[in-house]
Design a protein around this nucleic acid. Structure first.
Length: 727
RNA sequence: GGGUUCGUAGCUCAGUUGGUUAGAGCGCAACAUUGACAUUGUUGAGGUCACUGGUUCAAUUCCAGCCGGACCCACCA
């Protein structure tokens, strides 16, 4: 720092310090190769399809605070960075990029699309990386991974092969959320609900009246369901009813199940296992046949309706039912429909062949790991959510009908074909010798019949299947040097919104693959909201760019704004005035250091030597003890960080430095103009910048370098990063 | 329907196993200040700690209920 300058200029200084850190290679654990105790965090990889937002910066700040703290405590620290290919999200984003150039995905073809999308992600990753560096994230960028790197693909495929060999994955007929526009199966998490005005049709099934919003699926009914506690219909359970229908006389069995809501409609439900998730489940329990009448384009496949869109068919069928006098009444209702999160298209629940992972045993291992306290979640109350989610977990559909991702390494001898029988039942037939096999390298022939005619599965893995293997894949797999040294890792720090979709799956897959938990502590942070407490979103236009805050107020100020005073798990509002307040605090630190340096400016080299050799608490004040206050403060920060009260710790360093150290202590020292007092000022300043360094690395490093230049301290290392946290 | 969370000063939020006078920042008012800090200091105003009960010598804190806001999961025929 230049003590001629009366106020702090964060931008200029921060860039200089970043260059200094990078030049000296301080982020890599090898910098202190001999350290024994390790501390590592697999950094949640941001999606390589955009830029960093404040949520990322908030996460990175927590991670970096822990890393820098542990370095000061003598640990060998590794933060491993990465980027996620984010399969469906990126595919949609990149399709839009292509669209602007007038190019369609299918025109490019699978291979070329993949190649261009890869390049697109590399460009984004480079941008993201420079943003990550700019916020002072002390990650070892030489170890950075992308989830579609060759070695990571290999690890993912190996995992799948193990699962396949052990019979943990299977290709099954399941009902899935199908998006007719994106042409893919979607996880529940990739869908959302929307209120829609619609009609409820009361249709006669003989003497029974069924209320439905989807009359077009009547032809795929395979049962009628009622609640066994419903006195009106109880006696019908187990019977078969015969009634006049669209297709003439029809018979359907009546089943009893408690999911049927007695108070909805007439209390009678038509069961269509081929086109409704709940009905599919009923079909499984009651062993009902499955009939499909809608295809993947969202068009009818049945009889004379063939080729019609669902809504067109609905109108036609309603008209026919009316003509047959089968409709009792039509009611207007509001109900919510499931839509694709990306394309906003109405989801069509369809039967399809997908790859599934049996999760039951993995889920119970993941629960056990928590119960045996091998994993701790902060805040603790989230543990309940974790357990509950795992307890109710169903088999995981890990295949997606997309191009952007790892292609499933399954091969069919001679290919396969899907057969829809006359009654709409879907089956699949493997051609050739009828065998399916998994191969890590591209196979030349079928291992069973030696035929060279083999076809790879078209599908790719669900993006979470690869990201759930992040804790060990990011280290380079089970045989790598880093894995041996750093696994299990120490902390997973991530948004509380992905506790289920990501954290619990990482635990499951890591336990499966490595027999160990991936990390010991999970810290969950909340969401960064705007000034009015609204979630940032593109559609609302209230998104905030981290770089505007950094340019205006500096990184240290932004880092504090994102964590200070915030308890784990809690959402946080961010706005300019807040960041400005922290900028003022950073300037206060600058000026207090400047004041102390001014006190020592004209000292002789002997006096400076005296100061260097006599750092410590040297002056007894009448009514105040900085030693007592300072030691209490340091212990408190230590305690808070050890139990992951990071936001409270950040709040306390500010409170202490500003109101105890500056307002009380420094003011009092003005009465004691001795060399011992100066030595004590230097000493207490050094202690404070060490303690504050994890939170605000730039200003503290800046002061440290100045103390070094002025020969006022005997440094332990090139950088403040490797000083010792005071005992 | 199941679960989580919040309600404390005008605003944004803390309050660490129950314990004197409930705190900070911003804002507001007054005073000081050629000061290390046009980005500072001191002082002050402002709170029935959402509401109602209970446990206790003692409740913002624990329990039950209730009102109001946010969120997650499941379901919506």
């Amino acid at each position: 720092m230049n003590i001629e300058e009366k106020s702090y200029n964060p931008n200029k200084t921060e860039i200089e310090i970043l260059n200094f850190w990078e030049r000296n290679n301080l982020y890599t654990p090898e910098y202190k190769e001999s350290r024994k105790k390790t501390f590592s965090i697999p950094l949640p990889p941001p999606n390589a399809n955009g830029t960093l937002h404040l949520g990322h910066v908030s996460g990175y700040t927590y991670q970096d605070i822990l890393a820098r703290y542990k370095r000061l405590k003598g640990y060998k620290v590794l933060l491993v960075p990465g980027k996620d290919h984010a399969s469906i999200q990126t595919e949609v984003v990149f399709e839009k990029v292509l669209e602007k150039k007038g190019i369609k995905k299918r025109d490019l073809g699978r291979e070329e699309f993949y190649k261009q999308c890869f390049d697109f992600c590399i460009i984004n990753s480079n941008n993201i990386r420079s943003q990550e560096k700019r916020i002072g994230l002390s990650a070892d960028f030489s170890r950075e991974k992308f989830t579609l790197d060759e070695d990571l693909n290999r690890i993912v495929n190996e995992t799948f092969k193990e699962m396949f060999d052990q019979g943990l994955v299977y290709r099954g007929k399941r009902i899935i959320n199908w998006c007719p526009k994106c042409f893919t199966a979607l996880a529940d998490i990739d869908t959302e609900y929307e209120e829609e005005e619609s009609f409820l049709y009361y249709i006669k099934y003989g003497d029974l009246i069924v209320a439905t919003t989807r009359p077009e699926t009547i032809i795929a009914d395979t049962a009628i369901a009622v609640n066994p506690r419903d006195k009106r219909y109880k006696h019908l359970i187990g019977k078969v009813i015969e009634f006049k229908s669209l297709e003439g006389l029809k018979t359907l069995p009546v089943i009893g199940d408690r999911v049927v809501d007695i108070n909805f409609g007439t209390g009678v439900l038509k069961v269509t296992p081929g086109h409704s998730k709940e009905d599919f489940r009923l079909g499984e329990i009651h062993n009902l046949p499955i009939i499909s009448v809608i295809d993947q384009r969202g068009k009818m496949t049945y009889g004379k309706y063939k080729g019609l869109k669902v809504k067109e068919a609905r109108d036609l069928i309603v008209k026919e039912l009316e003509d047959l006098d089968l409709i009792k009444k039509i009611e207007k209702i509001k109900h919510s429909i499931q839509i694709c999160e990306r394309s906003k298209t109405v989801i069509e629940p369809l039967i399809s062949y997908q790859w599934f992972l049996k999760t039951k045993d993995m889920a119970s291992s993941a629960i056990r790991a928590l119960e045996e306290e091998k994993i701790h979640i902060h805040p603790k109350r989230q543990e309940k959510n974790y357990v509950q989610w795992l307890e109710n977990l169903e088999d995981w559909c890990i295949s997606r009908q997309l191009w952007w991702g790892q292609r499933i390494p399954v091969y069919y001898c001679g290919g396969k074909e899907t057969i829809i029988s006359e009654n709409g039942d879907i089956t699949e037939k493997i051609l050739g010798c009828g065998n399916t096999f998994v191969s890590l390298d591209e196979p030349k022939e079928c291992p069973f019949c030696k035929s060279s005619k083999i076809v790879q599965d078209e599908d790719i893995f669900d993006t979470w299947f690869s990201s759930s293997q992040w804790p060990y894949s990011v280290l380079g797999g089970l045989n790598s040097k880093d894995f041996k040294e750093f696994y299990p890792e120490d902390v997973m720090e991530t948004g509380r919104d992905i506790l289920f979709s990501w954290v619990s799956r990482m635990v499951m897959l890591s336990l499966y693959k490595t027999k160990k938990v991936p990390f010991r502590d999970v810290y969950l942070h909340g969401i960064v909201l705007d000034k009015d407490g609204q979630k940032q979103s593109k559609s609302k236009g209230n998104g905030m760019d981290p770089s505007t805050f950094i340019d205006k107020f500096g990184t240290d100020a932004l880092r504090l704004s994102l964590v200070s005073g915030n308890a784990a798990d809690q959402d946080l509002r961010l706005y300019e005035e807040k960041v400005k307040g922290f900028r003022n605090f950073i300037n206060k630190i600058y000026n207090s250091a400047r004041y102390i340096l001014l006190q020592t400016e004209n000292l002789s080299s002997e006096d400076k030597k005296y100061i260097r050799e006599n750092l410590g608490y040297r002056v007894k004040m009448k009514d105040f003890s900085i030693q007592k206050e300072q030691e209490k403060h340091i212990r408190n920060i230590e305690k808070l960080l050890e139990k992951f009260d990071i936001g409270i710790a950040a709040f306390n360093i500010q409170n202490f430095y500003h109101h105890t150290y500056c307002d009380i202590y420094i003011e009092k020292t003005k009465e004691y103009q001795t060399l011992d007092m100066k030595a004590e000022l230097i000493y207490t300043l050094l202690q404070n910048i060490i303690v504050m360094h994890p939170f605000i690395p730039f200003i503290t490093e800046n002061i440290y370098q100045t103390l070094k230049e002025k020969d006022l301290i005997t440094p332990l290392d090139t950088s403040l990063m490797y000083e010792k946290f005071p005992l």
